[in-house]
């Protein structure tokens, strides 16, 4: 295993600007996330935090600048099994019923070949991921019948099932009850202990707060704070127009 400081950073964002329908949502963002870091992206609604995350995983195109995942530009990045993504959403249900296990096993598709049935080891991975989010007893339940917090837990399990090196979560705790938030925090803590890099967007970190070792505050599409987590929250709330950090991509 290579020591983390010589490896390529998990995420490298350089001078990133993103244009959504003619409006510049991100302006010149520089950010470097090293392997093993647990980073929270904070900011008010419309500050660009979800846009940043969605551009990092390649869902939105960059108007200017560049995003690299593990040293590869995101447009050419193909090792998607190294990434676990939890999109921001209200429900995990589609127009047809689907069970918890079915939704979670779609997290394995980055590793599966076409026209092959699920292998025994993959079934075991699904069970294990459900165990982590405390949903093992509900693997055969329809996702549409679950509560919002349980559905969000299913989406976390779907991201964890491929054993990713980089976990990206967009508002994982929005509208989720405290019990589920506690279970998330446990699942994330267990991943962090294994060296997984975590990036999460949140309004309110809740029980995840203790896990964060760096936070980034966005305001109107720019990074206005990048550093130790607790200072950032005071900073974000008390001095909204405070000084910008000296060096972009500042490492904690």
């Amino acid at each position: 295993m290579t020591p983390p400081n010589t490896a390529e950073p998990a995420v490298q964002v350089a001078d990133l600007s993103v244009d959504l329908g003619g409006r510049l949502v991100l302006r010149g963002v520089d950010l470097q996330i090293r392997r093993g870091e647990v980073v929270a992206v904070l900011g008010t609604n419309g500050s660009g935090k979800s846009t940043l995350i969605r551009t990092i995983v390649g869902l939105l195109p960059a108007a200017r600048g560049e995003v690299n995942l593990f040293g590869t530009p995101v447009r050419r990045f193909r090792q998607w099994n190294r990434i676990g993504y939890v999109p921001q959403r209200i429900t995990a249900a589609g127009g047809v019923p689907a069970t918890v296990a079915e939704v979670v096993s779609s997290g394995l598709l980055s590793k599966r070949r076409l026209f092959r049935p699920l292998k025994t080891a993959e079934r075991a991975a699904v069970d294990e991921a459900l165990e982590i989010v405390d949903m093992a007893g509900q693997r055969k339940d329809g996702v549409a019948e679950l509560s919002g917090g349980q559905q969000q837990r299913v989406l976390i399990a779907r991201a964890l099932v491929s054993d990713p090196e980089l976990l990206i979560l967009d508002e994982p705790t929005a509208g989720v009850d405290l019990a589920s938030q506690g279970i998330f925090a446990g699942a994330i803590r267990e991943r962090v202990a294994r060296g997984t890099t975590v990036v999460m967007v949140s309004h309110d970190l809740g029980p995840m707060d203790a896990l964060i070792d760096r936070s980034i505050v966005l305001r109107r599409g720019r990074i206005v704070y990048d550093g130790a987590p607790h200072a950032s929250q005071t900073h974000a709330h008390v001095h909204p127009h405070g000084s910008i950090q000296d060096e972009p991509g500042w490492l904690s």
Binding site: V57, G58, L59, R78, W80, N81, I83, Y85, P87, R89, A92, G94, G95, A98, E102, V103, S105, S106, G107, L109, S110, R112, L114, F115, L118, L155, R158, S162
Partner: peptide, 22 residues
């Protein structure tokens, strides 16, 4: 039937399917 898992993922959650490399 053969591409069932892939088609299911795309229909269920298009964004997730993209990030999973489909």
């Amino acid at each position: 039937i053969g591409l069932g898992p892939q088609l299911f993922a795309v229909c269920q959650d298009e964004e997730f399917a993209r990030v999973t490399g489909l």
